[in-house]
Write a protein that binds this DNA or RNA. Sequence first.
RNA 1: GCGGGGUUAGCUCAGCGGUAGAGCGUCUCCUUUACACGGAGAGGGUCGGGGGUUCGAUCCCCUCACCCCGCACCA
Length: 879
Amino acid sequence: MKEELATRYEPSTFEQRIYAAWEEGGYFTPVVDRDRPKFSIVIPPPNVTGRLHIGHALVNTLQDIIARWKRMSGFNTLWLPGTDHAGIATQMVVERKLAEQGISRFELGREKFVEKIWEWKEQHSTEIKDQLTRLGASCDWTRERFTLDEGLSRAVRYVFVKLYEDGLIYRGIAMVNWCPRCRTAISDIEVEFRERNGKLYHVDYPVEGTDRKFTVATTRPETMLGDTAVAVHPDDERYKDLIGKYAILPVANRRIPIIGDAILVDPTFGTGVVKVTPSHDKNDYETGKRHDLPQLQVIGEDGRMTDAAGAEFAGLDRFDARKKIVEMLREQGFLVKVEDHLHNIGVHGKCDTDIEPMVSRQWFVKIEPLAQPAIEAVRSGAVQIVPQAWEATYYNWMENIHDWTISRQLWWGHRIPAFHCPNGHTSVSMEDLAHCPECGAAVAQETDVLDTWFSSGLWPFSTLGWQGAGHDKTPELDVFYPTDTLITGFDILFFWVARMIMFGLRFTGKAPFSQVFLNGLVRDEKGDKMSKSKGNVIDPLDVVNEVGADALRFTLAIATSGRDIPLGKSRIAGYSAFVNKIWNASRFALMHIDVELKNAGPIDRDNLRTVERWILSRINSATAEVNKQLSLFRFDEASGALYKFFWHEFCDWYIEMAKPVLLGRHGSDKDRALAKRVLLEIVDRSLRLLHPFMPFVTEEIWQKLGGVEPSIMIAPYPISEEVLDDPEAERLMNAVKAIITTVRNVRAERGFTPKDRFKLYIRVSEPRDANFFRDNAYVLIELARLTEVSVEGQEPEGAHHDIVEGFPIAIEFPEKQVSQEQLDRVRREIEKSVKELESLDVKLANEQFVRNAPPQIVAGAQARQAELRARLEKLQQNQ
RNA sequence: GCGGGGUUAGCUCAGCGGUAGAGCGUCUCCUUUACACGGAGAGGGUCGGGGGUUCGAUCCCCUCACCCCGCACCA
C-alpha cells in the first residue's frame, strides 16, 4: 500500500471531509432492534438562543467520548440530539433584537411575535448543528428533536392534563417571584441571590392618640406605601399595651392597626417592630393571611407604582419612588437614620432584574408526591449520581422542595391547555375546546405558557415518540428507553435532572437513565468564571479553527476529573502538541509498515523479541486502564493513560528501540518483519483507543492502514487480553530503560556530550538474564550511546558504580573527569539513601511493626533494606 | 445559619493508610533522516495549622483558619 500521510498535521484539511463521510455512511444512526445490546444517551438540548459556548463544547465532547466508546464496544448506540425552545431566554433575545428596530412585542401582537421567534429558531438550530458537527459529535441527526415539535407538544399536553386530573396541578392565588422586566412569574430556583450594598432606612411611625412612636427599619421604603399593619411581638413588654391601637403611616397618612405576631417578629432583633406589607413581601403576605389584613398593591407588574400608591407616586419606577419617599420622609422629619447595609437581593437569573414578590393567580405543580419516588430512585441506586458528592445536594433540595410555579406570562412556549368561560369555570383538555363543558358558554384558552423545564423534563421519552396513554409504546421507546447515561452540568441538577427523574418515574414507571455524570464549570486558567465582561471567554469554534477539534476535545477530556475545569490557551496548545505527536509517530510507522491491516494476519507471538513483547504488554495495560476509567467517568485518567502510553512509552522508548531493527542496522529480515507487524498492531490499537477522544485525526490516519471496516468509528474498541500481559518482559525492559537513563544522567552530570561513548558493565547472576542483555546489547548501545556492553567481566575500579533495578552496573569513562557538581550529587544521593536506610532499620527493629504490619509490607521493607545497603556500597565507590 | 466541596512542586490538578505524582512553566545540553508542536537531563513540596487513632497518616477521626459552591435568610 504505502499510502503516506501529509508531512504536516493540518486538521482543517480533513476534519469536515471526514464528518461528511461518517454521516453519509449512516454510522450515527442505530438500528431499531431490541435483540442487540443498546446504549442510549440524550443531549441536554441547548437553548436556541444563540451560539454554543465552551461549556457546551465540554458536555458534548464528554457525551461523544462515551457514545463513541460504547458504539465501538459493540453497543447499538443512539445519541439523540435536539434543541430547547427556552421560553424566557429566547423571547428575551428576540425582543431585544426587535427593540433595536424600535418595535415592541406588544405592537406586533402575540401571533406575529411568535412567528418572528420561529424565524430566529430556524436560523439558530442550524447554527447549533453546524457547531456540534465541527466538534465531531456523533449524533443521530435523523432523530433531531425540538421541544416545540408537534409530538413533544402532545406529550407536554398529556402530562399537564394527567397531572391536573390527578390533582397534582392546581391553579391558585399566591405570592410568587415576579420579574418586572420580563413581566412574568418565575419559579423559586430561577431566582438568584446577589450580594449588594444597600441602605437600611429607619423610619418613625407615630402611634395614634399618643405621643409615642415606633421606629421601623426597612431596606425598601417604597413598599411602606402598601403597609397595612405594624407588628410587634405579643409578649413584648415594651409594646404589648399598644396592640389593637393604630399607627399613622407617614407620608400616606393612613391609619394602620398594630398587631401582635409571634411568628413574624423577633423581639430581640432591631427595634422589635416590623412594618407589614402583605402585597410585597413573602413573610408579610403570610402574616396578612393570619390576621386577615387587606392587601394593597402599590407596585405593578411593570415595576412602576400603582394608583394605590397615591397620586404623587403613581407611574413612578419603583427605584425612583424609593428616592422620592426617602426625600419626603426626611423633609417631614420621619427619617431617623440611614445605615449602609450589605444584603442579598433576589434577581431573575436570566436578566438580572430585581425580583418583585407579587400576589397573582398562577398554575402550580404539587411536587411532593413526585419528589418522594425520585428520592427513592437515587437512594436505591436505580439512578447513580457521579461524582457521588452531588447526592447529598440532591437529597437536600428534594427533601425541602416547594411547589413548582409552572405558568409563565409569556408568548413563546407551550400554551397551557386550560379553557376559561365567563362563568368562572376552568376546563383542562387534551383537545381544544370551544364551549364550556359545564355551562356551554364560549371559552377562551389560558394565555399563560408553561415553564420551559416542564417540557425538557420529558425529554428522554418525549423525543422517542412518547405522547402518553395510547402513544407510549413506540418501537424507539421499546429499544432505547430508559436511556443509560446522562451527562450534563451540575448547574441544572434541579432545573432539569431532578424533574426528568420525577416525570420519568411518574409517566413511564422507570427512571429515565441509570447514571448521571455531572460535569464542572469551565473556568479560565486562573479559576475565574468565563464571561464576556471579563474578556476571558474562549469560543470553541475559534479553537477548532486554530488547532482542530481533536486538540480541544482531548484538552477538555483530560481536564475533567469531576470538578471545575480550568482551561487556558496554553493548556490547549500543550495537547495540540500531542495530536501533532500522534500524527508524526504515525507517519514514521507508515514509512515502515508495508502490509495492510486486513492482510496482516495474526502476530507470531512465539518468536517475538522481548522489546515487542514489552510494548504489547504495555498497550494491554493501557487498554485495561482506559476501559476501566471510562466506565467510571474519569475522563482525565482515561485520556491521561493514553497520553502516557503513546508518548512516553511508545514514542519515547519503543520506536527508538525498534529503529535499529526497522532501519536494518540490527537483526534478521525475520526480526524486521515481526517488528513491522507489531508496529502496525500498536498503531492500529492506539488509534482505536484514542478515537473517542480524537475522532478526526485517528480516522484520517487509520484510513491509511487498510482495515476491514470502512471507518474506525465502527471498528471494535480494544479490550485487554490476558495473553498479552508479560511481567517478565516488563521486568527486563524496566531494567534496560533505567540503565539507559542512568547512563544519560551520569553522562550529563560529568560534563560529557552525547557524542562521547563509554563501555558499560552489567553484572548478572541468572544465565537467562545474561542472554537477554547479550541479545539486547544493541538497544543499550544505541540509546545510551555506548561503545560496548559487557555482561561477563569484573567491573573496573574508578568507573561509576551503581545498582539499577537490581543489576549492579559500572560505566567506564575515558578519564577521570569528575566535576564538583557530580561529587555533590553523589553526596546528596548517599545522604538520602542513608536517611532512608536508617528509618528502615528503625522500622524493622520495631517488634510492633514486624508483628502488626501485613507480611508483604514487611518483606518489601526488608528487600528495600538489602537493596539500599548494596547500593550504598556501590555509590560510595564513586566518591 | 444549614449542607457540600476545597487547601499537595512557581501554575493547574491527580493520589487518599505502607518509600511524595502528572501536565504546564523554569534551568542546562542536543538541529540524531517521524516530530524543535522535538529529544535528553536537572532543580523544585515540613501534602493549610494543631490535636487524636495506628506499628505507621498527605490519606481515617476531632478541631481551628482561610477559599469556593448550593440552600435558607432578620425586618
